[in-house]
Design a protein around this nucleic acid. Structure first.
Length: 111
DNA sequence: GGTATGACTGTAT
DNA sequence: GATACAGCCATAC
């Protein structure tokens, strides 16, 4: 079967649509794609493609708003500084106003 | 096709 | 609050 609409592709689409100054969680994306417990796939998919242009992977954090992947970027501060530059307040690698920055694709995209 | 792994999440202790 | 364990799904070997 064709796979042009891979899980990866869907992840890219969603992540690309994350507005500036906002962030979302792996679980939210997974749930939006129908993989209620496939958060790991989202993270894995991102890790395999965060190098690609147009994928603001730094806007994707875990359910607690913690920058779990910051260490995987070129620099451990890249992710935090990037988010801070967009207006997101971060402390201890964790988004302080997480609930305010949280961008839920199921609601925002309102499919 | 089975085993191992992963940027996760939720429940249990 | 922190640690431990289990669940879930796709990719890689």
């Amino acid at each position: 079967m064709k796979k042009e609409n891979d899980f990866f592709n869907d992840v890219y689409e969603v992540v690309r649509q994350i507005p500036k100054g906002r962030a979302t969680s792996y679980g939210a994306i997974a749930a939006y794609l129908g993989k209620k417990r496939g958060a790991r796939l989202v993270g894995w998919a991102m890790g395999s493609s965060y190098h690609q242009q147009g994928i603001p992977a730094h806007r994707v954090v875990n359910s607690q708003g913690i920058l779990t992947a910051k260490m995987l970027f070129d620099t451990p501060t890249f992710m935090q500084e990037k988010l801070e530059s967009e207006g997101i307040l971060i402390k201890n690698d964790k988004i302080q106003n997480w609930k305010e920055c949280f961008w839920d694709p199921e609601k925002e995209l309102a499919l």
